[in-house]
Design a protein around this nucleic acid. Structure first.
Lengths: 341, 341
DNA sequence: CTGTTAGCGCGTTCAA
DNA sequence: TTGAACGCGCTAACAG
């Protein structure tokens, strides 16, 4: 590592220093195996000596690839999304890709805008991870156009699955089924499903799973307790208060998300029911926070670090022309205090 | 919006469609005021009709700027960092910049690597937001070199402040001072400072503020309760258990972070002291989660959305050659249940 | 296995 | 105010 000259070294500088042509230097980076061992080390030495780094703008312009993927999340401030982002960022970095962070803030307008501009901006791939309903004509068109422009799209929810090349989703029906069944197996009844506002495409899936578990346990849909609210802590708290003051008090609550679970916990605490054992609570996503709360929160969900890494890997495989497969992730129960008997 | 041709439209296409030269089209984008009103609308029409978008790779190659900034955070999975990231992303987007997400995962090696490669990668600026100790020769050198290459660097902590062009930090001494004073004003004593492991550069500042408040209230440093632990929930819980089983039980706890506060809450819950009013608890950062917990968590901190936006704005101002100022953010108390009397 | 050649799409001189 | 020409740094044919 020598003193950096005013102007960064270019490939030509390296070529001259190594006594080869620019093309050879280029090959050392793009297809090392196609260069003789000896020449390669000569080049690498020159690279090290000149502290040379590939100019990514030039490479992108020429090759049409940017080695960059965009990560679009519904709300990066949510633990679920930030943990996913972390996993994606690490996996991408490990494969030489950069990650552009785009926070949708639950705005479909913003999503449409991004989906239209990112491919033209030169992004190689897009991961779209939001539970919000994204089925509009503009979004469909934008995804199609992206694929036409050879920008791979990976969707994190089942919605629009047919359109994108890749889908990597969690089986949310199973999430709610397992959560509900877990509580029912403890002889709790009634069990309420909390959350599931209309804005989310996961809501119907959660509801299905919940109802399946109920009916398997011999409870008719008529007896089901559906407390539909937005995915916010405040709304969930209010809804839970409603449940607790209703004619029949639930013995278990399946919360659609951790935010919703926090609202439930809040209402339970106010009602003096905060202690574990009284009313069982399960959240439908597994985040680190679950382990840090008291009572520790039982969850059903996938391992986000694995899933995020798998998303990045699959997308990058697709970008590089390797075969990449869509996957459905099977969630699992993480038993903790909030549903202890 | 017409059907997209196979190959994306280029500037030449726009020029032809508008009956002008490429240079004119270029000017419409870079210096609109230098183009006649009439010509400009002609060009804009052609742009809209062809669905033309500037090729950012070409623009970057030519101009030497990428309209991209990198955000380096200690751990994006932490609410503090993800909320900051959200604010940065939105502000940057509003000014036409993309944000590259880099998660350091508290690794200084990774930081060094990123700091060396990003500027050469063509990033226009870097925001470095981590509470970890980053003072190594390699980091100092990398920051210097970045600045030489005209990549602006904004630091989120006071450390290495002299080296980077911009520093936007929170007055952490004041954070701990206010938190401690708040508890002391309620006639609580002793008050313990929880957290502050050696890895963080904020620890000494927090300690200073804590001690200042103690001494102002007439308590000698010898009476101070310093419970030094890592910044993890588990460590904080163990440390709090230690405090509670010690000879003198604290009546108040200043937690260095929300993770630490969660550990304290956990230990308090186990000891049957979870209810507000008994032992006052204040956390040294203001995140959304504070409002969602029960008891709701009193905090001292800045508004992260404002601070993140200010960071992005200042950095982009500096990049664009406008004057940008370093700032010291004054934190404020957010009174909630955990320190209610 | 290596060198030669030709642009990728754009910004920016300089003249007109 | 506009147009013509040059080259940013690199990759991808094609020869050899």
């Amino acid at each position: 590592m020598t003193v950096s000259s005013a102007a960064p070294a270019t490939m030509l500088d390296v070529a001259r220093a190594a006594g080869v042509s620019r093309a050879t230097v280029s090959r050392v980076f793009t297809a090392p195996s196609s260069v003789a061992e000896e020449t390669r080390t000569k080049v690498m030495d020159a690279v090290a000596q000149l502290n040379y780094v590939l100019n990514s703008a030039a490479r992108s312009l020429r090759s049409g690839r940017s080695n960059t993927i965009a990560l679009l999340v519904g709300d990066i401030a949510q633990p679920f999304h930030s943990q996913l982002a972390k996993a994606v960022a690490h996996a991408a970095e490990g494969r030489g890709y950069s990650v552009l962070l785009c926070d949708l803030d639950h705005s479909i307008t913003r999503l449409e805008r991004l989906l239209e501009s990112l491919p033209l901006q030169g992004v190689d791939g897009v991961i779209l991870a939001t539970g919000d309903d994204i089925d509009t004509d503009a979004v469909r068109a934008a995804i199609r156009e992206a694929e036409e422009r050879d920008t791979k799209v990976l969707l994190g929810t089942p919605q629009l699955a047919g359109i994108a090349t890749l889908v990597m989703t969690t089986d949310y029906e199973s999430v709610a089924y397992q959560a509900t069944k877990h509580l029912l197996d403890q002889e709790r009844w009634p069990v309420a499903l909390l959350g599931g506002g209309a804005s989310s495409v996961l809501s119907p899936l959660l509801k299905q799973g919940y109802l399946r578990a109920c009916s398997e346990a011999g409870h008719s849909a008529a007896d089901a307790m559906l407390a539909v609210t937005e995915y916010s802590t405040d709304a969930a708290r209010a809804a839970t208060q409603g449940l607790l003051s209703g004619p029949v008090r639930p013995e278990g609550i399946v919360a659609s998300s951790v935010s919703v679970a926090l609202g439930a916990m809040s209402a339970l605490a106010d009602a003096g029911l905060g202690a574990p054992g009284q009313i069982g609570l399960v959240a439908c996503e597994e985040v680190l926070l679950a382990e840090q709360l008291r009572p520790r929160l039982t969850t059903v969900g996938t391992k986000l670090d694995l899933q995020g890494a798998a998303m990045a890997d699959a997308l990058i495989d697709a970008i590089q022309g390797n075969s990449a497969e869509s996957q459905d992730w099977v969630p699992q129960l993480n038993l903790r205090e909030s549903s202890a008997r």
